[in-house]
Structure formats: C-alpha cells, structure tokens
Design a protein around this nucleic acid. Structure first.
Ligand SMILES: [Mn+2]
Ligand SMILES: [Mn+2]
Ligand SMILES: [Mn+2]
Ligand SMILES: [Mn+2]
Lengths: 222, 222
DNA sequence: ATTATTATTTAGTCATGACTAATATAATTA
DNA sequence: TAATTATATTAGTCATGACTAAATAATAAT
C-alpha cells in the first residue's frame, strides 16, 4: 500500500466533506461545489478519483461519505487548520478575521513536525479562536460543551458563547468589535422577530437573526 | 499591467537563478535543471514562459539572467525563505538541518502579513542560521562581512565563521555537532592536503576539504 | 401521469508543468 | 578541418484539475 501524498485540492475536498457532514447529514455534489467554489462537473470528477482511492463513498443522488481513511485525512487537515488559526492569533498577532485565509493555505504545507511544534508551544489546545474543536494528535475530536444557536434560547442573565459558525471576514470583524466571541458571557434580553437583543459588557445590541444564527451558546437548560 | 501571482515552480526557478548567479557568473539551463531536480527540456519550457513574462532574459547557450522585476520576485521569495528558516530555528525549535526543507515549501505560501509578523517578532534580522543574508523588506541585500572559503586561509588563532554554503542535511548536522556554525570562533592549526586542522571550543578536528570548502570565514587579511 | 425543475454526469477542452526520444547547435579535441 | 562531446531545443505525451455545453436521472408540481 502506497501513500502518495494527496494534492491540496484533494485535501480540501475531504476536509469540506467532513465539515458539511457535521451540519447536514447528507453531502451533495452541489454542496461541495458551492463550498469549494468549483463547478459541479469538477466535483464529479474529483469524487470519482477519491472513490477509486477508497477515501470516499458515493451513492449517486444520495450523497458522499468519508471512509475511515478518508476521515483520518480530513481530521489531519482540520487539525492543521485549527492549530494554525490559533497560532496565528496568539503568536503572530493576527486578528480574528485574518486567520482563516492564511490557515487555508498553510494547512496543506506544514509538516508533522511543524504541527507538533505549535501544538506544544500552545499546550495542546482543544479549541480554536472560533470555538471549533481541534482534533487531537490521535485525531479524536475533543469534547465540547453542548451548544445551541443563540436564537433558540429564551431570555437569560448569563449565557456563554461557545462557537461562532462562520468564517466570513466581515461578520467576524463585526462580532469581534461587539465582543461576541467564544468564552464571552452575555445577557439575552429578548428574542425578537428582527433579532436578538443582548447585553455584552454593559452595551446593548440588537443582533440580526442572520448573524445570531451563527452564534452558538452553551446550553443552560437542564 | 496584471500581477497574476506566480506558481511555486516559477518562484523556485527565479530564486534558483538568483542564487546560482551569486556563485557562477553565468547560469546555464543545466545548472538550473540540476538545482531544481528537473530535466533540461522542462527548463527550456519554463524559461521560455518566464521570458515572455519579462522576468528573465535568455541568450541561448550563453545563459539566463533575471530582469529587474524577476529579481524583485526572487528576492521576495528568498526573504521568505530565510526569514522562515530563522523563525523555525528560533521559535519552533527546529534543528539546523530541518529548517531548509520546511522553508522551501512555506516560502511560497505565507502572506506579506506573515512575513512582516515574523520579521517584527525577530527584530528584523539580517542573516539566517546558515549565515545567508536576508533581503530587507525593501528587497535590498544587507551588507555582510567579506568572506572567504576556509581552505584559502593560513593558520591563524582567531577566525570567525560567517556562512555555511550547503543545505545538505547530513553535512549540516555534522557541522552542527562540531560547532562549526556561523558566529563561531575557531583556530586554524594547519591547512593540510587532506583537510583543514582546526580547534573549536577546545576540541581539535581535521575537516575534510570537501566540507571545509563550504565553510566561509571572515577575511582577517588586510 | 405528464411536465417542469433540479441535481448529476458525460463528453470534450484547456492550461500547467512535468517527462522521453530525437534533433540541433556550440564548444572541444583530435 | 573534422570528429567528438556537451548543451540546448523540438516534438510529442502524460497527469492534474479545472472549465463549458449537452445529456440524463431524480424530484416536485400541475
Ligand atoms: Mn485549504
Ligand atoms: Mn476555525
Ligand atoms: Mn520552494
Ligand atoms: Mn539558508
């Protein structure tokens, strides 16, 4: 059995399949095309190749799935990505909205040595700056607090943000200015039609639904 | 005028032309093929393209030369490379023989932001761990002490190593064990046919000619 | 059930950047 | 000068990973 090192494209395909699978339970060719910013025929072609390599399985019109080995690779890339994001933020003074782009390129290029070095340096963190879990060196996903989208919560005094489900630069820098970042404690004043009224560090905002939906919080319900 | 971002290959070609030009005064297609680990026809093809982009000039059978813009790009990549080498060594605990390989890949992928961040962090260093000068942000080559190969020197008490002209992992780790690294002060005992007899930190070695030739030292002659 | 819509695949192109085999050109040597 | 050797170029191939246009299959609407 050879191990002919995957291309950056192939790694991105696997990673994206994994991430989509976390949200929807079926991953269509179109989903992939959208996410990877590629045309559907390109996806068909690449998926065919990944199938032949036993990295994914594909039931036409039903969806794509990672195999064991495919998932391992996806997790490896995801670990690189999220470690890098945290590293860039912590050690190279990157702002929240800049880390994703850089990590997207570096993730394919750093060695296992590099991965280990920054993991060490940061004391083996479990979550990246967006609150996304960082797969361990053994490629297990670390436990995260159970999270729910902000709009699904009722008014409450103390809610803790756990994760921010976007990598859109504009939204991210907005959220950052508002202190709506993982770990932040907020008060949910009222869930209105137009958005969620919250208090953060004294200030009060109406967070539009489109944005509120991306903010996941620790579930305080019993 | 567009700026269509060069491929990694193209960047490596330009960088290699620059480096070869520092040694020999003419850069042949074969030199390039050897250094880039590629067949001569591939070089012909790529050089043709780089010519069309006005990044190099080529007189068949006479040699290849960088244009102004070509040199700028070469220096940009070289700066990335050397900053990265120093960064990996200083901040990520890479050993001397590991840095080159990693930098060779990362150099094409880091952003200007990344470059600036690590340069800042290291206080804008002028030389990398091999003693190679790091082009400045303005792409000027910083002054280096004038250096000569170790075998060209006569016996002397205090000679300072300035640069080590190899990136061969085996040679590098050997030199490192012997403390034959840039900045190190050594005593040249005798220049023999078989090699150079030196004393370094108390210990005495016979450094074979093949290796001694790679060690450049500050010129103590007047 | 038929039709319209959406999702996916086929077929055929293109650009990149390598390769081999064969040819041509220049530099050396006899 | 002529033959030899080293260097470089052409011609033609291949793998990758995208693309468009057209065909086909599944799903939804009438
Ligand atoms: Mn990527
Ligand atoms: Mn993230
Ligand atoms: Mn390189
Ligand atoms: Mn170096």
């Amino acid at each position: 059995m050879k191990k002919p090192r995957l291309s950056e494209s192939q790694e991105d395909y696997l990673k994206e399949i994994f991430k989509l699978r976390e949200l929807n339970e079926t991953v269509s060719m179109q989903d992939l095309a959208r996410k990877l910013d590629v045309r559907p025929p390109s996806v068909t072609g690449m998926i065919k190749k990944l199938c032949a390599m036993n990295l994914v399985e594909h039931e036409p019109y039903k969806g794509v799935q990672l195999t064991e080995t495919g998932e391992k690779i996806a997790l490896e890339v995801l670990r690189h990505h999220r470690l890098l994001e945290l590293y860039l933020a912590r050690h190279l003074n990157y702002s929240w909205d800049e880390i994703h782009e850089e990590a997207e390129r570096l993730e394919h290029v750093i060695s296992e040595k590099f991965e280990a070095a920054i993991a060490d340096l940061m004391d083996h963190p479990t979550h990246d700056p967006h609150g996304d879990p960082i797969p361990t060196a053994e490629l297990e996903i670390p436990d995260s607090p159970s999270l729910v989208p902000l709009p699904s919560l009722k008014a409450a005094k103390s809610i803790v943000i756990g994760r921010v489900m976007t990598q859109d630069k504009d939204i991210l820098s907005l959220l950052f200015r508002l202190d709506l970042t993982p770990g932040q404690e907020i008060e949910l004043i009222k869930n209105e039609a137009a958005g969620i009224r919250v208090r953060v560090n004294g200030s009060q905002y109406l967070v539009p639904q489109t944005i509120a939906r991306l903010i996941w919080c620790e579930n305080t319900e019993t």
